[in-house]
């Protein structure tokens, strides 16, 4: 299935490439050139833009000037949004993992005896991919709205004060991020759990490990590749997302993320250097977190 591509490189058993030939160059060149032109060059022009300064204060015209101050200025100015982005992304990743692991375990391990059920449940997991991401989020906005059923029920149960809201609050943003990235978490988990050999679990219980102990010492380590690619596939887009946090969707004035700031600086205020500097900061932090994380979890070969 197409979507299993998300589960990343773990699938392919790479055969030793055998030939050196001019054909390789012909095959590679167009695609690589394309990536250089439309991925590498934009990153470079982003870096250049991030170092520009205004020709005259308030002119709105920028020119190159190795203006490193853009970085310190925007980091200081937008520190809350930067920290918030990573906090929300981490929370969403943790919640998505907690939500998805049991589900993926059931589909991948327990449902093996019924292949039809397995395929059916898998299709339901990826079903959200096939309906507009924005419409799904708007649907949640309506369901979680102040007049909606969820807030009403919570108020009736006194779990939410009479003035309480969900939408516009950080909780709604984290909820939306979690919901939207659950399939990205579920699929890689499913692909590793589906190949989990239950005989290891049997051997573990035979060696005096209780159910919990078996889960912690055998199931989790054996499904680590899925956990790592699932968390990356959730964390990276969640940290840069700005749809969930924008005020027309689930966010409010106090829940803006770095993505919202980049978007408004670039598209609304036309403050290109600030937007570019923040983009570079976002990318740098993500790359650092990802490489530390991948190294720590001992799954280097995943990249």
């Amino acid at each position: 299935m197409a979507i299993t591509a998300f589960s990343g490189s773990a699938v392919a058993v790479e055969a030793a490439p055998r030939r050196r030939s001019r054909i390789a160059l012909v095959l590679l060149l167009p695609g690589i050139l394309y990536l250089v032109l439309f991925f590498v060059v934009p990153l470079v022009s982003l870096i250049i833009t991030s170092l520009e300064s205004q020709t005259a204060p308030g002119s709105g015209v920028y020119q190159y000037g190795f203006n490193v101050q853009n970085y310190s200025d925007s980091i200081v100015q937008y520190l809350p949004q930067i920290l918030r982005s990573f906090l929300y992304a981490i929370l969403a990743t943790v919640f998505a993992l907690l939500f998805s692991y049991p589900l993926a375990y059931f589909i991948g391990v327990k449902a093996r005896r019924w292949p039809l059920l397995q395929s059916f449940m898998l299709i339901l997991v990826i079903a959200p991919f096939f309906i507009s991401f924005l419409l799904r989020t708007l649907a949640w906005k309506t369901i979680l709205a102040d007049e909606g059923p969820v807030v009403g029920t919570l108020k009736a149960l006194s779990l939410l004060g009479p003035q309480g809201h969900i939408t516009g609050e950080p909780i709604a943003v984290v909820f939306g991020l979690t919901y939207n990235f659950i399939p990205f978490m579920c699929l890689p988990l499913y692909t590793t759990l589906e190949r989990l050999d239950v005989r290891y679990l049997e051997a573990s219980t035979d060696l005096y490990a209780s159910g919990w102990s078996t889960f912690r010492r055998v199931t989790i380590p054996l499904s680590l590749p899925g956990i790592v690619s699932g968390t990356l596939l959730t964390f990276i887009p969640a940290a840069g997302d700005y749809v969930n946090a924008s005020q027309e969707f689930l966010g409010g004035s106090s829940s803006a993320m770095i993505g919202n700031v980049i978007q408004s600086n670039f598209l609304v205020q036309s403050n290109y250097p600030a937007a570019a500097a923040l983009s570079i900061v976002l990318m740098a932090i993500i790359l650092i977190i990802v490489s530390v994380y991948v190294r720590r979890s001992g799954t280097d070969d995943l990249l």
């Binding site: 005989r199 290891y200 049997e202 573990s204 035979d206 060696l207 078996t214």
Partner: peptide, 27 residues
């Protein structure tokens, strides 16, 4: 199974692939 005073040498060995030989034996 984990409450029974029984151990098995499995036909398929079922050695834990993520542990060393020593960790397997000490498990």
């Amino acid at each position: 199974p984990f409450q029974r005073p029984v151990n098995t040498v499995f036909q398929s060995y079922a050695l834990f692939p993520h542990m060393t030989v020593l960790e397997n034996v000490a498990f």
